[in-house]
Design a protein around this nucleic acid. Structure first.
Length: 480
RNA sequence: CGGGGCGUGGCGCAGCCCGGUAGCGCGCACGGUUUGGGUCCGUGAGGUCCCCGGUUCGAAUCCGGGCGCCCCGACCA
């Protein structure tokens, strides 16, 4: 067999990550630098993410639509901060149909501009508001340094765009969508996240306020996993999104945008994975259970397979995503390791003994070796499996939460913060600094302000950098 | 964009210094063996040695130029 074990996380986390992504068959390298091919197993995880989010979007009144991939270059330039933020990483089409284009077309890095232009047509009256639109799409940002899922030149995401009559409604929407992201992350992806507001420096180009959910990866680096922006009237003014109010006066809309991308796949990998490979939360796992049939001689095979086929139907009928590993020529031991690497939450072993005793072995991925194995009766196996999957889902979340909480410290003095952050942990500290102070912290410690958490200790303190009185604590960490 | 590394069957690599029949492991195909934690044996298929030019009787190997990729950092919604 090839190199058997993957590189240990503790040895080289980034190498571990790359190996897992390729060996677990989530993705493959692409011919184009910075892009990846998302393979079926990885894409199914994304489909799980899409499903979980889309359901929540619809439940809160949003509708899906689709806008063009190409954006006239002039659109991008209409909002000053927006163009400044994005121009370094734009891919631009200058030729098409064998001719130079009159106006270059930008491959969308995000769609505030095209959608803003559309909104200005669609919205006439306060009766047209709120307008709640989402699109599932690909976007391109020409990043210099890329990593599969975490940052690729092209990635898949959803971007929500909404328009409202008042600032307060827009703010409410912005926060609601952040809550939806957090709810999804916690309940479906089993990733505990910290909700908070971004600093001025980390704000989306063109936003008035940016909110984020931040997650801690297994190497303790922070990953911004979803963002929600209150755009104020910046884009409304740039794209003339106005409505006629009840009092017959024209007013600019207040808009929002919010996005979550295939980066979430990377978050799942890096939050739950261990030295044996992936550990997928049952809600997002393409296969929630895999049956490995075991037979010694050919004459045992029909008997075992008969039971396996029956259980496959039984389990599938209960709405559990089950897969039978029918590969010939691989030993059960090989298959055990293979599915562990690929993160399947539960492995079901069926051998001659089980056929005879009317039972099956359930082995949970989140508990190693023997302790994770149990015998269950074939009757009612679906119920047992269902309970086990719920337990695993809960355990992964609890695990990740405990890990995260162990690695966040409250600090008072700058030296203390530096020590915590340089050791790889996160630091929570009072903050009242300027943009320059924030840059200096990054320079001196490698950490950035991930967010000002919504959950604040209350009261006031002294800024970790300036020593001045401060109203809020910030979360500092090294980030992806 | 700065620093480092690398381009040789599908993947991972050796060979290069010191020029002379292109090799190993894995994977793949076939046969047998095995199967409750990464079986073993045999047979076989598969290569423009990144590209261009030069030196030479002869270049994967030496020289010149080019291209590409990866890693670290900087940058980054």
């Amino acid at each position: 067999m090839s190199e058997q074990a993957v590189t240990a996380q503790s040895e080289d986390f980034s190498r571990w990550y790359n190996e897992i992504v390729y060996r677990a068959d989530l993705a493959a390298p692409s011919p184009v630098r910075g892009c990846v091919i998302i393979k079926p197993y990885g894409y199914e995880i994304w489909e799980g993410i899409k499903g979980g989010l889309d359901r929540r979007f619809k439940a809160t009144g949003h509708q899906n639509a689709y806008f063009p991939l190409f954006i006239p270059e002039s659109y991008i330039k209409r909002e000053a901060q927006h163009v400044e933020g994005f121009s370094p990483e734009l891919a631009v089409v200058t030729h098409a149909g064998g001719k130079e284009l009159e106006e270059p077309l930008v491959v969308r890095p995000t769609s505030e501009t095209v959608i803003g232009e559309a909104f200005s047509d669609w919205i006439q009256s306060y009766r047209d508001l709120p307008l709640l639109i989402n699109q599932w799409s690909n976007v391109v940002r020409w990043e210099l340094r890329t990593r599969p899922f975490l940052r690729t030149a092209e990635f898949l995401w959803q971007e929500g765009h909404t328009a409202h009559a008042t600032h307060d409604e827009a703010e409410e929407e912005t926060l609601q969508m952040l809550d939806i992201y957090a709810d999804f992350a916690v309940k479906d992806a089993a990733i505990p996240v910290i909700k908070g507001e971004k600093s001025r420096m980390e704000r989306f180009a063109g936003a008035v306020r940016t909110y984020t959910i931040e997650a801690m990866m297994r190497d303790r680096r922070a990953l911004q996993s979803g963002t929600s922006h209150n755009l104020g009237q910046n884009f409304a003014k740039a794209f003339d999104i106005r409505y006629l109010a009840e009092n017959n006066e024209q007013a600019y809309c207040w808009t929002t945008s919010w996005g979550l991308s295939t980066r979430m796949v990377g978050a799942v990998v890096m939050t739950h994975g261990d030295d044996k490979g992936l550990r997928l939360p049952p809600k997002l796992a393409p296969y929630q259970a895999v049956i490995v049939p075991i037979y010694r001689k050919d004459d045992q095979k029909p008997l075992v397979m008969e039971t396996v086929n029956r259980l496959e139907k039984q389990i599938g009928a209960a709405g559990i995503r089950v897969h039978v590993d029918r590969r010939e020529g691989q030993s059960p031991g090989f298959k055990f390791n293979d599915w562990e690497m690929r993160g399947v939450p539960v492995r079901i072993e069926i051998g001659p003994k089980d056929v005879q005793n009317n039972n099956a072995v359930l082995a949970r991925r989140d508990v190693p070796r023997r302790e994770g194995k149990q015998f269950v009766s074939q009757d009612g196996i679906a119920d047992a499996l269902d309970a086990l999957l719920n337990a695993i889902q809960a355990n992964l979340l609890a695990d990740a939460r405990a890990f995260r909480d162990r690695h966040i410290s409250d600090v008072g003095a700058y030296d203390e913060m530096r020590q915590v952050v340089e050791g790889g942990d996160w630091a929570r500290a009072w903050w009242n600094g300027s943009d320059e102070d924030e840059l200096a912290v990054k320079d001196e410690t490698g950490a950035t302000i991930r967010c000002f958490p919504f959950e604040q200790p209350g009261g006031t303190g002294y800024c970790v950098k300036t020593g001045q009185p401060a109203q809020k604590v910030a979360l500092f960490a090294r980030a992806y």
